[in-house]
Amino acid sequence: MHIQEEYSERHVLSLTVTNEAGILARIAGLFTARGYNIDSLTVADITADHAISRITIVTNGPPKVIDQIIAQLDRLVPVHKVTDLTENGPFVERELALVKVAGVGEDRIEALRLADVFRAKVVDTTIESFIFEITGTTEKIDNFVGLMRQIGLVEVGRTGVVGLIRGKEPN
């Protein structure tokens, strides 16, 4: 007997939740308990009184499972609203990465040239290394990191995706 895999698609979900102890464990635990995927997850409080947080989750799964994920998130008591940005778009998504690259001579110059093309900023430097700050879509950062790997990538820190619906209406 073999276990079959299903077709899956990427969705960016944006949640507003009560900013309380355990909320992140509640959300992340729901994904593990029900066997859903998390590609990235970000969380920070977003209101002046720190009462509400926004959680952005990038997940993937068959369309039926995505619907189920939204319904399951929506019934958690501290969840105010769940928006499927992918479904309700168009939307803007951004991720920030810090990319440490080491090298000397021509590699150093090439790293700076590529950084310029990707509009990455140098935020730290030594004689033998740079840390670049880059924002963009997940794909853009993947591409940048892929190029830096060929030059002398040391390590990467990424924030995960945040996103908002375009236009004047809230998510």
């Binding site: 039926k64 619907d67 189920q68 319904a71 399951q72 929506d74 019934r75």
Partner: peptide, 11 residues
């Protein structure tokens, strides 16, 4: 009464 019960296993 629970939206997550709908379309969970049977559409």
């Amino acid at each position: 009464i629970d939206r997550s019960s709908i379309n969970k296993t049977v559409e």
